[in-house]
Amino acid sequence: MLKRLREHKSLQGTLLVSPALLWMIALLIIPLILVVITSFGQRDPDGNVIYGFSFDNYVRLTGTTDTCQNLGDYLNGAWQMIIGSEARTCFDPLYVQILWRSVLIAIETTALVIVMGYPLAYFVARAPIKRRSTLLFLILIPLWTNFVIRVYAWIRILRAFDILYTPGAVLIGMIYEFLPFMILPMYTSLEKIDPSLYEASADLGANSLRTFLRVTLPLSMPGVVAGTILVFVPVMGTFVVSDILGGKQFVLIGNLIQSQFLSARDPTFGSAASILLMVMTLIVMIFYTRKFGFGEEVIVG
């Protein structure tokens, strides 16, 4: 048995991936299939799921109302909404607004976290080796405290500035929560840049700014890309920050899903919203990674 294992590389591979694979199948693939099935079901008045095959939940997410007869009516309604007309026949903007808000805050958070995190990551990567671990440690310390507690702590601060329960409050909370996840991959790729490349650049006549634009920035892009994926995807789905800091007005798709499962007791609609979230995240990420790659150089090295 052992002898066969030693001889067969593919068998070794199977053995090495199988724990993770089994875990993923049991806790990711199977639940996902269940969510897909549920999303096509209906809820009976008692809150039980009646399994079936209906697109009703998805149609509801698009904001199509009962008065709608065809796609033309719907698009017209959506257009009326966009140009700010009051004639809202056939279109309920509620869910579309939630989706739009979620995408927007994910983009805003990611962009701001890049802008704020990059200088810090650069600073840490260029610090003397002995000091780097201390600095990284300081960046990671906040993560030791429970996520929810940290967000709660912001309530007091934001209230003091009188901006609690505003979109700005949610943005601040998001940036705070996700900054470390951007800094770490950016640090990794900045730290890997051979310092002699900076010297070579200076030697060839480039001043600091040009060295940054032509050498540092392109070589650290994998870290920025990896960080973007690590931040954008969770921000799209999170509900804790908006729940605690955003108030009732500021609903993200994560909050919608949560409320459907817990308070509204409509798992079928919640499942449909989850699938929509996944698909949207996937689409954004496909466009993004087509353009920039996965940042695999940082992860794989």
């Binding site: 051979d194 070579a200 650049s201 030697d203 060839l204 480039a206 070589l219």
Partner: peptide, 28 residues
């Protein structure tokens, strides 16, 4: 500073820019 001196260096580990082609390296 180095970028204002009329000298150029060939580094021991070459220090070629990995993200640029050979042509771009030489043109830098």
């Amino acid at each position: 500073p180095p970028f204002q001196r009329p000298v150029n260096t060939v580094f021991q580990n070459y220090a070629l820019f990995p993200h640029m082609t050979i042509g771009q390296n030489v043109a830098f």
